[in-house]
Amino acid sequence: AEIMKKTDFDKVASEYTKIGTISTTGEMSPLDAREDLIKKADEKGADVVVLTSGQTENKIHGTADIYKKK
C-alpha cells in the first residue's frame, strides 16, 4: 500500500472504496510508525493509506483510513 496525502487522495477518491481504519501506537520513530501503518494496510489488502491523525509526545499515535481500488 502507498501513503497518500489527503489533498492528493481527494483528486482520485472516486477510484477507491474505503475498507477500514488502522492505527499505530508506541515508542517508535515517525518512520517506524509509517512503516507499521503500511504493513497493517498491506495485511488488509489495501492499495492506499490516507493519514487522518498523528500525534507525538512521549509516544507516537497515528490513524489512517485504508482504501482498495474499485
Rank of each mutant, 00 (worst) to 15 (best):
A13R: 13
A41M: 02
K70A: 08
I3W: 11
Q55R: 07
K11D: 04
I3C: 06
S23A: 11
K70M: 08
D47A: 05
I3E: 03
N58F: 09
G45D: 06
D10H: 05
S29V: 05
E2V: 15
T7G: 10
R34M: 15
A33G: 06
K11W: 05
D65Q: 04
S14N: 10
K6T: 06
V49Y: 01
Y67V: 04
L37D: 00
I22Y: 01
K59V: 13
Y16R: 01
D47C: 10
A1R: 02
K18M: 08
A64D: 03
L37W: 04
A1G: 04
D65T: 06
A1P: 09
D42C: 14
K5M: 14
K59T: 14
I66Y: 02
G54C: 15
D36S: 08
K68N: 04
T56F: 13
G54D: 14
H61P: 09
K69D: 04
K11C: 10
G26K: 12
I38C: 07
A64S: 04
G45P: 00
V49M: 08
Y67D: 03
V49G: 02
I22C: 03
Q55S: 12
D10K: 08
G45H: 07
G45L: 04
D8P: 02
A13C: 12
K11A: 06
E43L: 12
K40Q: 14
V48A: 03
G45V: 02
E43T: 06
E27L: 14
G54P: 11
M28S: 07
D36Q: 11
T21Q: 09
S53M: 13
K70C: 09
T63H: 11
F9L: 03
L51H: 03
G62C: 15
N58K: 09
K70L: 08
Q55Y: 15
R34H: 08
T7C: 13
P30S: 14
K44H: 12
G20V: 02
I60T: 12
K18V: 03
K69E: 04
V50P: 01
G26T: 14
K11S: 06
L37Q: 00
P30Q: 09
M28T: 05
A64N: 03
D8G: 02
D8Q: 05
D65F: 02
K11R: 11
I60N: 10
V12Y: 05
I60G: 12
E35D: 07
F9E: 01
V49H: 02
D32A: 12
K11G: 04
L51N: 00
K39S: 07
Y67W: 02
G54E: 15
D65N: 04
I66M: 07
I66Q: 00
V48S: 02
L31E: 15
T17N: 08
H61R: 12
I60H: 11
A41Y: 00
I19W: 03
T63I: 08
D8F: 05
E43A: 13
R34P: 03
V48K: 03
A46R: 00
E2L: 14
T63M: 10
K44W: 13
T24L: 10
I60M: 14
T17M: 11
K40R: 09
N58W: 07
Y67M: 03
I66S: 00
N58A: 12
I60L: 12
S23M: 12
E15I: 06
F9V: 00
I38G: 02
T52G: 12
K44F: 13
Y16V: 02
A41P: 01
D42E: 12
K40M: 09
K5V: 12
I19P: 04
M28Y: 07
M4N: 01
I38T: 03
I22H: 00
T7S: 14
T56M: 12
V48Q: 01
D47V: 05
I19D: 02
A1C: 12
K59Q: 11
K6P: 09
E27M: 13
G26A: 10
K40E: 03
K18A: 06
S14F: 10
E27W: 13
Y16K: 02
D8Y: 04
M28E: 07
L37E: 01
D42M: 15
T25W: 10
S23C: 15
A41F: 01
M4P: 00
I66R: 02
K44L: 15
A41E: 01
Q55M: 12
T7H: 12
Q55T: 11
G20F: 03
E57P: 11
L31H: 13
H61F: 14
A64I: 04
A13I: 08
V12P: 01
G62R: 15
K5E: 15
D36T: 08
D65R: 01
K11M: 09
A46V: 02
T52C: 13
K39C: 07
T24S: 06
K44R: 14
T63N: 07
K44M: 15
K68S: 04
H61C: 13
D32H: 09
K11F: 05
S14A: 11
T7P: 08
D47F: 03
L31C: 13
T25Q: 11
G62S: 13
G26S: 11
I60S: 11
I19E: 01
G26Q: 11
T24K: 01
D47R: 03
